[in-house]
């Protein structure tokens, strides 16, 4: 009886999969003809999903480790291994592929003989309210609701001698162009990995952080 049940279960499982595969292959194929869509919301969701799911097993690899095409295949592999729903995997792809650009990532400290610090005189004064919304959509994935970081290697933004004690120009340059501090395993992707954000959005986020954690900009 037991043998019969096992054999039957196996046969039914395999047959079900085969039938479903056959019947869905056409629709799946058709749906993949259209390019995948990855809008700003997908990028934001992907940042959160990346930190939530990928760190379940291993260190988060910097988005700059692979180019966009390699991330596309790599995440597809991880969709299977980690049992990710397809939509979640697509969001992670959107984030990693949009963050994968290697241009602009600074490996030295702006303003200290390293990369040049950009001028942001053209920006309006930051709007903390708007900045909070941006932060809660994108930045929160890695930096956390409390600013202390959700993954290893992400700096504590609330620290008294932390990143926010640098000048506005340095912090904005780091966020907009991307940044990796010496010794850190993680790189901050340009625009937080969300290229839909504007420089003004980033200025608003910085205004929010300074207000939230009561940290004034440094002088140099």
């Amino acid at each position: 009886m037991n043998k019969t049940i096992l054999s039957l279960t196996g046969a039914v499982l395999f047959a079900t999969g085969a039938v479903v595969a056959q019947t869905m292959a056409q629709s799946t194929s058709e749906s993949t003809v259209a390019p995948q869509e990855a809008d700003a919301a997908s990028v934001a969701r992907g940042a959160k999903a990346w930190t939530n799911h990928c760190s379940r097993c291993h260190n988060l690899r910097s988005p700059s480790e692979l180019n966009a095409e390699l991330w596309d295949v790599s995440v597809q592999h991880m969709r299977v291994r980690a049992n990710l729903p397809g939509a979640v995997a697509d969001d992670i792809k959107a984030f990693l592929m949009s963050s994968a650009t290697s241009t602009g990532v600074q490996y030295s400290t702006p303003g200290q003989g390293g990369a040049s610090v950009a001028s942001f005189a053209h920006l309006s004064p930051g709007d903390p309210l708007h900045g909070k919304e941006i932060y809660s959509q994108t930045c929160i994935a890695c930096h956390g609701a409390d600013g202390k970081g959700t993954i290893s290697g992400v700096p504590d933004l609330t620290a008294a001698k932390g990143r926010l004690t640098k000048t506005d120009e340095v912090v904005l340059t780091n966020i907009i162009k991307g940044y990796q501090s010496e010794g850190s395993l993680m790189a901050m992707p340009p625009m937080g990995g969300n290229p839909d954000l504007t420089e003004q959005d980033i200025a608003d986020v910085l205004a929010y952080l300074r207000k939230e954690y009561d940290i004034a900009p440094g002088t140099e």
């Binding site: 995948q36 596309d72 949009s98």
Partner: peptide
Amino acid sequence: GGVPYQRVSG
């Protein structure tokens, strides 16, 4: 068919 981030492997 336009997309914000066209699939790289398109």
